[in-house]
Design a protein around this nucleic acid. Structure first.
Lengths: 143, 143
DNA sequence: ACGCCAAATGCAACTTAGTTGCAATAGAAA
DNA sequence: TTTCTATTGCAACTAAGTTGCATTTGGCGT
């Protein structure tokens, strides 16, 4: 993605364009996997942003729908940009998370509507609004 | 479930029969939803078990496969007994978690093998070993 | 270009869920 | 009953994330 595009995304979501936001959004867009607060802080450590600012940046992005977050098995959050901001990555409503048991990376990708339908109707009395599918296994680069 | 059955389950999994374990297992078997450490501590508060003992009891149960755990959206764990110990509840490998957006309770139930298959083969290069499906919506008692 | 002000930032202190180390205790096998 | 290992309880600790508050700054109106 071109550098100029990043401020444009922030403006589109009515967020002020600041150095932290540009840096964090670039990192997320460039990543092929969902990233934790710690991952991002590590990558941006030379710019010494405050950890609280990073948390708040990520939660602003989540509220606005620029990114979405996934709870991991070790009580932390991973963040990944949503489809309209990066064509490679899944949309919000129906998507799968692939968790590599080897490298612990989480990949998001869209699934076809159909594969969820059989599940949605399976238990009487439960009204299903949203669906998340989690797959555990081994990613291509760890095989 | 009859009271005498609980020590039998513990013995079956080669765990010593102790008061904490009997109490915790009974609570889990009697519940129709997955429960947190805090939920269980609350219910057993009159017996003043140490919180560390409860954590260790739950992780022993998980290691032995008596219960399984689900990560929640608020970075904590919920526990539910597995099928062989309670016919109403899902098996480990292929099951769904229904999260009620109203009362936040999590229900587990089994799904037919078929509904996962279409997802498992969807992205080339990813070797899928396990599948978890999460459904968000409204449970029968909140409608 | 300038000033204003709500929004954003940085710092310190705090919260919450869960973990570790260790000494004391208690199942259950012999 | 004795013994031995697993289990328990307590205190201190860790890691991820949050809150309060004073300071700074992006971007709008003029």
């Amino acid at each position: 993605m071109k550098s100029e595009a990043i401020p444009a995304i922030l403006k589109k979501y009515k967020l002020k364009v600041t150095p932290v936001r540009i840096a964090v959004l670039r990192v997320l867009i460039d990543s092929d996997t969902a990233m934790s607060h710690a991952d991002i802080a590590q990558l941006l450590s030379d710019q010494h942003f405050d950890k609280v600012t990073l948390y708040r940046t990520l939660s602003h992005f989540t509220e606005k729908g620029i990114v979405h977050k996934v709870a991991t098995e070790d009580r932390s959050w991973l963040y990944a940009v949503l489809a309209e901001n990066n064509a490679d990555i899944a949309t919000d409503k129906t998507h799968a998370h692939f968790i590599c048991d080897d490298c612990d990376k989480i990949f998001c990708f869209p699934i076809d509507e159909g594969s969820g339908q059989s599940v949605k109707s399976m238990k009487k009395g439960f009204l299903v609004k949203e669906l998340e599918i989690r797959l555990h296994g081994v990613c291509p680069s760890c095989q």
